[in-house]
Amino acid sequence: MSAFDLLMGVLLIASALAAVTLKNAVHAGLALVANFLSLAVVYFALEAQFLGWIQIIVYAGAVMVLFLFVIMLLFDAKADVGLDRLPWMRPLAAALAAAFFLALAYAFSGVGPVNPLADVKLGGGLPKALGGLLYGNWLYTVLLVAALLFAATVAAVSLVQPQIRKARVKPQVLERDRELEEVGK
């Protein structure tokens, strides 16, 4: 294990912890951006260069900007609202997460080593090597994902469509109604 591995591990865990514990929602979002960027660096080290760039463009760029827009649109950036329904929720959540980590670590214990410095032929994870697979064996999966993205776009637009407003009543009509009401009295 090299110094690079240790540094990236510390960065990833620290930014992830900040993203799930910070009280200010904008700060949490920015910590998540830091997490995604360090993950992209790890991808570069693990010979997944194309994936690393996609991670930066799609996640750190598009997805997180969307998140920050919605946070700033909806809140005054408070992460904690209301009261805890269960006062011991946080320790319970931490205990469950720790148990899940132990289970995952046990499940991974049989897998061989992943060494970023070893000589493995992955073509650097460049589009030249990935494209043959994406448009070969995985073609139908790619088409399905494209259909799903299209459906999700349509769903998102129709979800946030503004409500249909009632026809605007002219002020003259309101005035006449009020006068008629006064006459009626």
Partner: peptide
């Protein structure tokens, strides 16, 4: 590392109270 990140995400899902977080 990936297992640890997953566990941290799980803690966030259980402990956070706002849908967006």
């Amino acid at each position: 590392l990936s297992a640890l990140l997953f566990a941290i995400g799980l803690y966030g899902v259980l402990a956070r109270r706002t849908a967006i977080l």
